[in-house]
């Protein structure tokens, strides 16, 4: 026999998917390794195929990563062992149902939605989703107005939390609660990642108490470490629940502030979601979910904003400003 032909990785993966789609009853591992393109060239009829078996394990992971439902079945009546396991891709779970179609307008909108992600795995996933969408052959409507929307995912904890929540892993991290100076270690089951007011949050359940907590990703000050424990998958729309909960807090908290007329604060805070005019001229009523975060937001406006109430926000605003002043009036030597 001639020297084995080198089969490119994508050809091996493609051949594996085709073979597993075509089989009704599934193929055993040795059937796969001895007959499927890319494996069969390296298969030893009598000998050790450990390397090839490891290759197969990795390929399965890669294929599943693409959303291909590669399943393992144990034929009834046969003894339970590794050799009798069969692999297949059930057609119904693999194929996009025929009644799912997208209009030209919807396709254009999905193109924009995919464009939103420019970094990290979210960008990889949306790019792949758009390739699959194009398989349907729909030509997208050209949008009237050119858009370049972008959601950033720069918090280092985003990717590891996204992995943990997909795998139902309990994780541990250090968290610096807004308004506090010491970080504390948290052990939680992450159930959703959500962006609210431009900031990424993680909604998580405390395994001991069952309580739901929201964490600001920017305040996570350590690596995300899986504890080894897992939690049962949750089938509720956790992202929506988390957003609804924070929205309730937002609606329940109102700040009364005074803004300088014609200032940047007067202009932009009036355009902030939910802002209403107060009783006096120049007074605005703002909604907020977290007094410490609003205090930081308002601090950027300097003397254009005076907080009237609540007192907690007033104090938080003052202390932020005092910190900025102190940091910029100390002499260089005092930084030491």
């Amino acid at each position: 026999m001639a020297a084995p032909v080198r089969v490119p990785v994508e050809e091996r993966l493609f051949s594996l998917v085709l073979a597993l789609l075509a089989t009704e009853n599934g193929l055993t591992k040795s059937e796969i390794l001895s007959t499927v393109q890319g494996y069969r060239q390296r298969y030893k009829t009598s000998g050790d195929n450990a390397n090839l078996e490891r290759q197969f394990e990795r390929d399965k992971d890669d294929i599943r990563e693409l959303g291909v439902p590669l399943e393992t079945i144990q034929p009834p009546g046969e003894a339970v062992n590794n050799q009798s396991l069969r692999y297949r891709i059930p057609r119904g779970d693999y194929e996009l149902p025929r009644d799912i179609t997208f209009s030209a307008e919807e396709t254009a909108l999905l193109g924009l939605a995919g464009m939103v992600w420019r970094e990290g795995t979210m960008s990889t996933e949306s790019r792949r989703a758009l390739i699959k969408l194009r398989a349907l052959g729909i030509e997208a409507d050209e949008p009237v107005l050119a858009y370049a929307p972008r959601l950033r995912v720069r918090d280092a904890s985003f990717e590891p939390l996204n992995n943990a929540l997909e795998r139902n892993q309990v994780v541990r991290f250090s968290y610096l609660k807004p308004g506090q100076s010491e970080a504390t270690v948290r052990e939680v089951a992450p159930v959703a990642l959500f962006q609210y007011q431009g900031r990424w949050h993680c909604s998580a359940i405390e395994p001991d108490t069952g309580a739901r907590k929201s964490f600001l990703l920017r305040r996570i000050v350590s690596d995300i470490a899986p504890t080894g424990a897992t939690f049962p998958p949750r089938d509720a729309d956790e992202g929506e629940i988390a957003l609804r909960e924070i929205e309730e807090i937002w609606n329940a908290n109102t700040a009364r502030i005074r803004v300088e007329p014609h200032s940047d604060a007067a202009m932009r805070l009036r355009k902030r979601r939910g802002t209403r005019e107060g009783a006096d001229n120049g007074e605005l009523l703002l909604q907020f979910a977290d007094a410490n975060l609003l205090a930081e937001e308002l601090a950027s406006y300097g003397p254009e904003v005076l907080v009237l109430e609540p007192d907690q926000l007033r104090q938080a605003h003052r202390s932020r400003l005092a910190a900025v002043l102190a940091a910029h009036t100390e002499t260089e030597a005092a930084h030491g």
Binding site: L66, G67, P69, D93, L96, S126, R128, K132, L136
Partner: peptide, 9 residues
């Protein structure tokens, strides 16, 4: 047919 999207996609 076309493939389904993955959960993450």
């Amino acid at each position: 047919e076309s493939p389904r999207f993955s959960g993450r996609e």
